[in-house]
Simulated scan of single mutants.
Amino acid sequence: MDTITLTGLRATGYHGVFEHERREGQPFVVDVVLELELDTVSDDLDRTVSYADIADEVESVITGEPRDLIETVAGEIASRCLSHGRVERVTVTVHKPQAPLTQSFSDVSVTISRSRHV
């Protein structure tokens, strides 16, 4: 399998279990790895997956309906990626760098992998 990777897609979202997270919002960062067979001969956009379309969909999920869990956010992004017929497998990491923890930390993230075939 070949891959298309989008790293560090950033947008403000309102996800979290605390009221202040849903009211004030915070940055979310998403990495997506799409696995598919790439046509490296035709030079035809219709024979691949547009990473611009994927980026738009990721941003739409981040800025869309608030969810309690970043696991749910990751799952929705993965489902949208798999809806592109050429994508066989996707790995999504959702980073929540300003998660409400009292400890010092640099990031909290969830990574999931999903495939078209079980």
Results as ranks from 00 to 15, higher is better:
69 L>R: 07
104 S>M: 03
94 V>R: 03
36 L>E: 05
11 A>M: 00
64 G>P: 05
114 R>N: 08
45 L>E: 04
56 D>E: 14
73 V>N: 05
70 I>P: 09
66 P>Y: 05
30 V>P: 03
9 L>A: 01
111 T>G: 09
90 V>H: 06
8 G>S: 03
101 L>S: 06
19 E>M: 08
4 I>C: 09
58 V>S: 00
51 Y>A: 02
91 T>Y: 01
58 V>W: 00
12 T>A: 10
35 E>F: 03
29 V>L: 14
108 V>Q: 01
61 V>Y: 00
69 L>P: 08
25 G>K: 10
74 A>V: 10
20 H>M: 08
98 Q>P: 00
76 E>H: 11
88 E>D: 15
23 R>W: 04
112 I>C: 07
101 L>A: 14
116 R>S: 08
101 L>E: 10
17 V>E: 07
12 T>D: 05
98 Q>E: 13
53 D>H: 15
37 E>I: 03
88 E>R: 14
112 I>N: 05
84 H>Q: 01
50 S>P: 11
107 D>M: 13
89 R>V: 15
99 A>L: 09
47 R>L: 14
34 L>M: 11
61 V>E: 11
12 T>L: 03
43 D>M: 02
29 V>R: 15
11 A>F: 00
1 M>Y: 03
108 V>W: 01
4 I>S: 09
6 L>K: 08
81 C>Q: 09
108 V>C: 11
98 Q>I: 01
78 A>P: 12
77 I>Y: 07
110 V>T: 14
31 D>P: 02
58 V>C: 00
66 P>N: 08
24 E>G: 00
115 S>A: 15
98 Q>S: 11
94 V>H: 08
109 S>E: 15
73 V>C: 10
27 P>Q: 06
43 D>G: 08
